[in-house]
Simulated scan of single mutants.
Amino acid sequence: MKNLNVKLFAVLALTGACASTFAAEVPASFDPKKCAIDYPKASLMNEEQGTTSASFLVSADGTVTDSKIDKSSGFKNLDKALIKGLSGCKFKPGTKDGAPAQTWTKVDYAFKLD
């Protein structure tokens, strides 16, 4: 009987591990090659560079429904360019419990001059 209890425990432990995998929330993502973020002309002329951190609320169909700047690059034009560029981008929807769902996703974008 002792051996049966060990096997039953192992099966229950594996079942619990699988269930927790599906219960996780996975944030939305995007392909940077398919999303254009234009460097603002004024920022180019003023040689502005920096990293903007933003959050995007992405619906279950992959469209952006809300956005906010979490940390500014220090230049409003660069921050606005990120929001504008990614708000029009099609995301791969995030998931909750394995199904497409509305989720927040964070993006850090570095504006650099070559």
Rank of each mutant, 00 (worst) to 15 (best):
S29T: 15
F22R: 01
A24H: 07
A23H: 04
S67Q: 13
D108Q: 12
A36I: 14
G88R: 06
K68E: 11
I37L: 07
E48W: 12
G94P: 08
A42T: 13
P32M: 12
A13S: 07
F75M: 09
L113D: 05
T52A: 09
D31I: 00
D97H: 10
V26A: 05
T103L: 05
V6C: 00
S29I: 07
L4H: 08
Q49E: 15
S67E: 11
S59Y: 11
G62Q: 10
S72K: 03
G88Q: 11
N77G: 08
N3K: 14
K80S: 10
L78A: 01
E25N: 06
P32T: 03
A17W: 06
V107P: 07
P100T: 05
G62A: 02
D79R: 01
L86M: 14
G50N: 00
S67Y: 13
T51Q: 14
K96P: 00
P32Q: 06
D61N: 13
P32W: 06
S59G: 15
A99V: 12
G85P: 09
C18P: 00
V6P: 00
D70L: 15
S59R: 14
T105R: 10
L8D: 00
K90S: 12
G94I: 07
K112W: 00
L78D: 04
D31G: 03
K92V: 11
F111T: 01
V26S: 10
N46T: 01
T51M: 15
A42C: 01
P27N: 07
A17P: 00
S55V: 13
L86V: 10
N77D: 14
G16Y: 00
A10T: 09
W104H: 08
D38Y: 12
K33N: 13
M1Q: 09
A36P: 05
P32D: 03
K2C: 03
N5E: 04
L8K: 01
G94C: 03
A42W: 06
K96T: 08
V26D: 01
V58W: 08
E48T: 09
A101P: 04
F22E: 02
M1D: 10
T65H: 02
P93F: 10
D114N: 14
P40F: 03
P93S: 05
P93Y: 04
F9W: 08
A110M: 06
G62V: 12
V58C: 02
A101Y: 03
Y109S: 04
A99K: 15
D31R: 10
P100R: 08
M45I: 13
T15L: 15
M45E: 15
V26L: 09
I69M: 09
A60M: 11
D31M: 10
T15Y: 09
F75Q: 12
D61E: 14
L14C: 08
K68T: 11
E47Q: 14
T95H: 05
N46V: 02
T105M: 06
P27V: 00
K84D: 15
K33G: 08
K76A: 13
T95V: 04
D114M: 11
L78Q: 10
A42L: 10
V107I: 14
K71C: 01
F75R: 06
V107A: 04
K90A: 12
V58K: 02
D114T: 11
I69V: 15
E47A: 04
K7H: 03
K112Y: 03
G88D: 12
A42V: 08
S20K: 13
F91H: 01
